[in-house]
């Protein structure tokens, strides 16, 4: 098994699917000649040519809408947003069109479109470029949202997304692009809607997604080493659909839950997860459910403060100790 980066894993997924299905098209700002704003699509233009790898103008509502329209006729566009923050100028297309057309047509039409790109803070770029809209988008029935945390999941989830017949929004993380991990060369997918227990433990369940999984795994090591606590880390991988069973199974085992996400707290993904745990595992809990999320303000520019605004290993450890107290 090769050890490759998260970025290379995404590229491998796209290359596989471009080879497998002639209707797959990669489209977005700077994806072709420039080789990708983050080099995720590097080399694909050379390999597949300009019909399959298409540079777009800076015109998100236009090109995302174009991709949705093309998907209704059987094209399988994989659209790159340079930042998921830019989805906000294409919101009508992403939500009203891709998310509603199947429903409003009584099931006559489907939109097999993938929109992917980074959705994260922590890069010192200020509020407009640091949005994490997974909860906003997942709150719309008709849309699927996944957030891979590792290279293996990045490749497997993106391949599953491209083969999916519904709109799937893949939220990546620029800070993870260089992270390396083992990724099979052979064909595989990570089914959408299946969480992954990234670390097995007995005393506390941490539920996280995206980079918060990596933060939580580091916190779990410290909790074990310094505090003798055995922590289980559940990586959601998919926000909608949500693997409720894996969350509940873990909580029923550990009887304590801490929810970690890089979103702001209000109506975040973990608000839904907390509701799930209290409604389906209330009697199993030995302590209230706690959350760690970003401090509730627009993303601050100052790098030193931004690092504190987002869930850090230290904050996760401190909050875990409160749940365990």
């Amino acid at each position: 098994m090769a050890v490759i980066s998260y970025r290379e894993a995404l590229r491998a997924a796209m290359r596989d699917e471009l080879n497998r299905d002639k209707n797959v098209v990669i489209m977005g700002e700077e994806v072709a000649q420039f080789n990708g704003a983050y080099k995720v699509t590097e080399g694909l233009l050379k390999e597949f040519g300009p019909k399959r790898i298409v540079d777009t103008p800076i015109s998100e509502a236009g090109f995302i809408g174009l991709g949705i329209g093309a998907s209704m006729l059987g094209i399988r566009p994989v659209m790159e947003l340079m930042f998921w923050s830019f989805s906000y100028v294409a919101f009508d297309q992403i939500v009203n069109n891709a998310g509603n057309i199947r429903y409003m047509s009584g099931g006559l039409i489907n939109c097999p479109i993938v929109i992917r790109g980074p959705a994260n803070g922590g890069t010192n770029v200020g509020a407009t470029h640091s949005h994490t809209p997974e909860a906003i988008l997942a709150s719309h029935p008709g849309i699927k949202v996944v957030c891979p945390a590792t290279p293996y999941d990045a490749k497997g989830l993106l391949k599953a997304a491209i083969r999916d017949n519904d709109p799937v929004y893949v939220m990546e993380n620029t800070i993870l692009y260089n992270d390396k991990g083992e990724v099979p060369d052979e064909d595989y997918i990570v089914p959408i809607g299946v969480a992954d227990v990234k670390r097995i433990g007995t005393d506390l369940t941490i539920v996280a997604h995206g980079r918060a999984v990596i933060t939580s795994l580091k916190a779990a090591e410290i909790l074990e080493k310094d505090h003798g606590v055995s922590v289980e880390v559940v990586d959601l991988r998919s926000i909608r659909p949500l693997d409720e069973e894996t969350i509940l199974k873990s909580v029923r085992k550990t009887h304590r839950a801490l929810l970690v996400e890089e979103n702001k707290p209000f109506c975040g993904v973990d608000a839904q997860v907390a509701y799930l745990i209290q409604s389906k595992a209330f009697d199993e809990l030995d302590a209230p459910v706690h959350r760690v999320s970003s401090i509730d303000a627009p993303q601050i520019y100052c790098k030193r403060m931004e690092d504190l605004q987002m869930p850090s290993v230290e904050r996760v450890v401190a909050e875990a100790l409160k749940v365990l107290a």
Binding site: R102, A160, R163, D166, P191, A195, P241, L242
Partner: peptide
């Protein structure tokens, strides 16, 4: 008629989990 996959469950559909809450 919300998701193609939910309306066409079969051996080829792969996603799992709760999708209608």
């Amino acid at each position: 008629h919300i998701y193609w996959e939910e309306d066409n469950r079969g051996p080829k559909t792969t996603s799992r989990g709760t999708i209608i809450f």
